[in-house]
């Protein structure tokens, strides 16, 4: 049941990626949303809880099936964490990594809730199925129940990351070459990711960004992960705050 829903969403995501990926090989595009609820900019020295990034990278087989690769996924997960740390360094905030305690039922439910809300935002904000009730506003929230996370980890914000990518196998690349001769375009890989920043006092998703890259960028490598995270963290209030402070 839930499996069917997430597969549906993944397919939507893939269609989305395929459309954009074909156009923008080698570049990064971002789409930033910020909360329309009243919200104060993060104070200097805010504590940021980095939730374990959900990363799944696959091999794109000759016919286009996506075969998950554990080593690539784990490698990219590590690189993304390192890049996030780098990206937020020097902004006066403190980053700490979250490790899930599966016995803490409330915490588990909060993470699942975020996944559900994040997928809903993706579906209705980015996949051309706008919700009438969300017109001209971005007021998504996990609710004040997130205060548990704030208390348990002494944190002000939680940062969630979700990333998917596919890289062509040698056979896929050969297939693409052969079919290109015949005038048929075949995709050779793509990456998509989203990040969301949750205010742990109100539960509001204060900033949400989707990033899509073409096959020229490879987040299995440090340079690729850097590009993806740079696109992913675009205009996030944690960095913006520091910039504003520098300006003023």
């Amino acid at each position: 049941m839930t499996g069917a829903i997430s597969i549906f969403k993944q397919i939507r995501l893939l269609i989305f990626i395929a459309g954009l990926g074909a156009v923008i090989t080698g570049c990064v595009s971002s789409s930033v949303n910020t909360t329309s609820n009243s919200h104060e900019a993060p104070k200097s020295g805010a504590q940021i809880l980095l939730m374990q990034p959900d990363v799944e990278l696959s091999l794109l087989t000759a016919s286009g099936l996506r075969e998950p690769r554990a080593d690539w996924s784990k490698q990219a997960q590590g690189l993304i964490i390192a890049e996030i740390e780098k990206n937020l360094a020097g902004n006066g905030h403190e980053l700490r990594q979250h490790s899930l305690d599966t016995d803490n039922a409330h915490e588990v439910q909060l993470i699942k809730l975020h996944e559900a809300v994040g997928n809903t935002i993706l579906l209705h904000r980015f996949f051309n199925q706008p919700l009438p009730s969300k017109k001209d506003k971005f007021d998504w929230s996990l609710g004040p129940g997130v205060a548990t996370l704030a208390d348990n980890y002494d944190a002000d914000y939680a940062l969630f990351i979700f990333a998917r990518g596919a890289y062509a196998s040698a056979a896929r690349q050969a297939t693409a070459l052969v079919l290109a001769v015949a005038g048929v375009g075949v995709g050779t890989g793509d990456q998509a990711a989203f990040a969301s920043l949750v205010n742990l006092e109100t539960g509001d998703i204060v900033w949400f960004n989707v990033t899509v890259t073409g096959s020229g960028i490879d987040m299995r490598r440090p340079s690729g992960a850097e590009s993806v995270v740079k696109g992913l963290m675009k205009d996030n209030p944690l960095t913006t705050h520091a910039t504003d402070k520098a300006k003023s």
Partner: peptide, 21 residues
């Protein structure tokens, strides 16, 4: 981890984590 089977386990491990909770 570098095999197709490792990838299948990686994905099903995540499904299992969801089921556990």
């Amino acid at each position: 981890d570098t095999t197709d089977e490792g990838g299948i386990w990686y994905v099903t491990d995540k499904v299992e984590k969801d089921l556990q909770t």
